[in-house]
Simulated assay, not measured.
Amino acid sequence: MRVVVKYGFIFIFFFLFMPDQGRAYIVDAVDGYTIEQLEADLKDIHKQYGNNLSVKQIGTSHFHQPIWAIKLGEGEESILLIGAHHGREWITSNLLMVMLERYADAYQHKKKIGKFDSNIFDKVSIWFVPMLNPDGVDIQQGKLPVQNKRDFIFMNDGSPNFKRWKANGIGIDLNRQYPSGWQDVPGSPFPSYKGYKGKQPFEAKEVQAVVRFVEEINPMSAIAYHSSGQEIFWQYGARQNIVRDYFLATKLAELTGYSLSIPPEEANGGGFTDWFIEEYGKPAFTLELTDFHQESNPPIRKLWEEWRRNRLVGIYLASEMANWR
């Protein structure tokens, strides 16, 4: 009897605390999430929820890999969520694909997400760009084009271990490529695994793609997901509506348990959210997943904790922006 009780307790504990209990989902905690895995998941998600999704290729990487955007909802207005500006931060792609599928399921079956009504997507859609930097993700995971291996090792300070790789396929740090404050951004003077801002803003093909896309859809707000540190950066420049954006940032902090932070000097300017705030005068937030990790990717075991923290982020922001129309 003691054995039965013990294993029954373990089963009940597992059932109560496993993610999204009682439901088989397509997207799982795939270690080393790649563009190939993302596309396979996206194909299955589109097959199941295609009536509520629009899938669009917005560009290609330097090595001609696709950059995908997925729209959930019918709303003419939208918000934008972006993952994997940096190669070693592919866990952000996992998270956004989990969010896409769970939200699509709730929307299709008219279920609430937390306290939020998924019908909000009839008014404000969410655009997901889960993996902006597929080349950088590949390099970080050791998938190097053979003919360029020597160049990559040189850009990686002579190391054949690419776990710290942030840049795109030609050594440009995509989140140092936007024009707001670009001229003052420090960093590597030449292509590198991190920190090289390029010869000019908008030089990288991946950044060109997302900028064109933002101009096309004109979202009401945006979030760029990064890792790591469990922080939220929200403040930049003179065009910002401080009262509005501080209110939103505070609510996001309450949902996630993350702290509100001011970026260090070397990371101030040149980023996507810096540009979005200054160019459009709209709220944008950088959310850093997981506790702090040195120069490497966060382990995939962190995914479900971060999903728990971020489960309501997208639908909260869509619901809140509906009130600002």
Rank of each mutant, 00 (worst) to 15 (best):
Y49H: 05
Y196I: 08
G171P: 00
P201E: 06
G114F: 10
S228T: 15
R102S: 04
F121W: 06
L42N: 04
E36H: 02
F152A: 01
L312P: 00
E203D: 02
S61Q: 07
A167T: 09
I26Q: 02
G181D: 04
S228F: 11
S261E: 10
W304I: 09
M18K: 04
N175P: 03
P186G: 05
V211N: 01
G22P: 01
M18Y: 09
F121Y: 08
H85Y: 15
R150V: 03
W68D: 14
A249H: 06
V5W: 05
E288H: 11
Y196D: 02
Y33C: 06
P19T: 14
S125H: 11
W182N: 00
L144C: 03
L248R: 02
F190R: 09
L16F: 13
Y236W: 14
S188N: 07
G237T: 11
Y225G: 01
M1W: 03
A222V: 11
V5F: 10
K71P: 05
H293Q: 15
F276I: 11
Q65T: 11
S61D: 09
G171F: 02
S118I: 13
G171S: 01
A24N: 00
W275Y: 12
A29T: 05
F213D: 02
W182V: 07
K110V: 04
D117T: 09
F9R: 04
L53G: 04
I70V: 15
I26W: 01
S93W: 06
S93R: 04
I217H: 02
A238V: 12
N268I: 08
E320A: 13
W324I: 14
G229N: 06
S192K: 06
N51H: 08
L252D: 00
A249R: 08
E320I: 13
I262D: 00
I91F: 06
E76H: 00
V210K: 01
N133P: 10
